[in-house]
């Protein structure tokens, strides 16, 4: 199962390593770590979002081990994706191997295409598609869209992405 965990680290060296060790110790697989240095809490701690894969029966061990190391767990969620984004593609979407386009996002491990709507008006006319992307964080969503834009450039597709304030990257 995929687990997302918000933890808070004291601002002293070695804390991040201490927090990540139990995941590997119990054979978990780390997927992403987002360190929110700029969002320091009033308690002076640094919020960190960790996403990892683990066997369900190991989760309690990991939690116990973290608590032993005095690391505070703010939230645990088994749902992996928190950010949802949409993009529109225009061009010869099917001819240019739509599966390959989708795979390139799904293979990232931090984002996934969860919905696709295709509209093909006439043969040989450019078609349009809407893609829904889920990602583990805003930063990862923006990265996934960048990957999509790179592929689209090679395949001569037009990508219409959300405005910047919507992506929250300001």
């Amino acid at each position: 199962m995929r687990v997302s965990m918000d933890i808070e680290l004291k601002d002293i060296p070695g804390q991040l390593l201490l927090a990540l060790r139990p995941v590997s110790e119990f054979k978990g697989n780390l997927i992403s770590v987002v360190h929110h240095h700029e969002k320091r809490t009033p308690r002076g701690t640094i919020p960190v979002q960790v996403v990892f894969e683990t066997k369900p029966d190991k989760l309690n061990d990991i939690i116990a081990s973290l608590e032993e190391s005095d690391i505070s767990i703010v939230r645990i969620d088994e749902k992996r994706y928190f950010e949802h984004g949409a993009v529109i593609l225009i061009g010869h979407i099917v001819h240019t191997d739509i599966q390959d386009t989708i795979d390139s996002i799904d293979n990232t491990g931090y984002a996934e295409i969860v919905d696709l709507n295709l509209s093909m008006p006439k043969i040989n006319m450019p078609s349009s598609a809407s893609l829904k992307i889920d990602a583990v964080s805003k930063e990862h969503l923006a990265q996934a869209i960048d990957i999509l834009k790179d592929i689209a450039k090679k395949k001569d597709l037009l990508v219409i992405e959300p405005i910047k304030s919507e992506l929250g990257a300001i």
Binding site: I88, I90, P121, K132, L158, I160, I163, K164
Partner: peptide, 28 residues
């Protein structure tokens, strides 16, 4: 990138997802 390649289908798909398509200029 201009607007000449935008299709009515793209506008419809966007609308179904709760969006409109606009030519946006951005500076930072």
């Amino acid at each position: 990138t201009g607007i000449t390649k935008i299709t009515p289908e793209a506008l419809m798909l966007a609308q179904n997802d709760g969006y409109v398509i606009k030519l946006i200029g951005e500076v930072n």
